[in-house]
């Protein structure tokens, strides 16, 4: 079976010489839910950035749906990104736009029809449980609400894969748990999820596949894993 994501011998050395990833080999199947864990500076964000071409690998190949994305022309990159929904750690919502407008904007950018936008946006916002804040701007929202708005935007174009970098980063345990449940629901509908996180309890509780990075090396790849092996 063809994997939705495959990394072959991927290394990333940043200009300046910092080695963020060393010889990573990973296959992720369509519909999987994968946690990416590891101490700070281990290379989790770098791993995710390689997937949506914020960064290019120094060595190795990355395939998404069988297509080698390290060989994409700049012109092709937007069409790769349209298949991936990214939830950034700092949300990256547009401050002067409301929640509705932020989510709609993701559809405008790919030139969806207004009718489609009017139909789809409220549905997705409802899905993340933010209908009551549809017309608020980001600064009027709590961290958890901004997280949901960012998630709605990542979801709205029906991506094949959702990539989330520490989606529970600054949230209290209850809110974190709600977000995780939401991600799990999305995953159950068939979307592949890759989530970088420090939230040990959540990872342990969810019993998903865990990729552990340490100093840029993939040190553990475990089905139904926990955050860190007790030794």
């Amino acid at each position: 079976m063809q994997h939705i994501i495959e990394m072959v011998g991927v290394s990333k050395i940043y200009p300046g010489g910092c080695v963020a990833l060393r010889d990573i080999n990973v296959k992720i199947e369509k519909g999987e839910f994968v946690f990416l864990v590891g101490p700070t500076g281990a290379g989790k964000s770098t791993f995710l950035k390689l997937l949506f071409r914020e960064e290019l690998p120094t060595r190795g190949q990355i395939f998404i749906n069988g297509k080698n994305i390290t060989r994409l022309k700049p012109k092709e990159v937007p069409y790769l990104r349209r298949r991936l929904g990214v939830v950034f750690q700092d949300f990256r919502l547009l401050p002067q736009k409301t929640v509705y407008e932020n989510v709609a904007f993701a559809m405008e950018v790919i030139e969806a029809s207004p009718r489609e936008i009017r139909r789809r946006v409220p549905k997705v916002i409802e899905m993340v449980g933010l209908s009551h804040k549809m017309n608020s701007r980001p600064h009027e929202l709590s961290g958890g609400e901004q997280q949901r708005a960012a998630l709605a935007r990542a979801l709205v174009n029906n991506p094949d894969v959702i990539i989330a970098d520490e989606p529970t980063g600054n949230l209290d345990p209850d809110t974190s748990w709600e977000i995780m449940k939401l991600l799990d629901e999305i995953n159950k509908k068939g979307t592949t999820l890759i989530v970088a996180t420090h939230a040990k309890e959540l990872v342990d509780a969810m019993k998903k596949r865990v990729l552990q990075l340490e100093d840029g090396r993939l040190v553990r790849d475990e089905e139904r894993g926990v955050y860190r092996c007790e030794t």
Partner: peptide, 12 residues
């Protein structure tokens, strides 16, 4: 940069 990360083309 946000536009570009959510899939906008350069021309857009």
């Amino acid at each position: 940069s946000i536009m570009k990360y959510i899939g906008a083309t350069d021309w857009f």
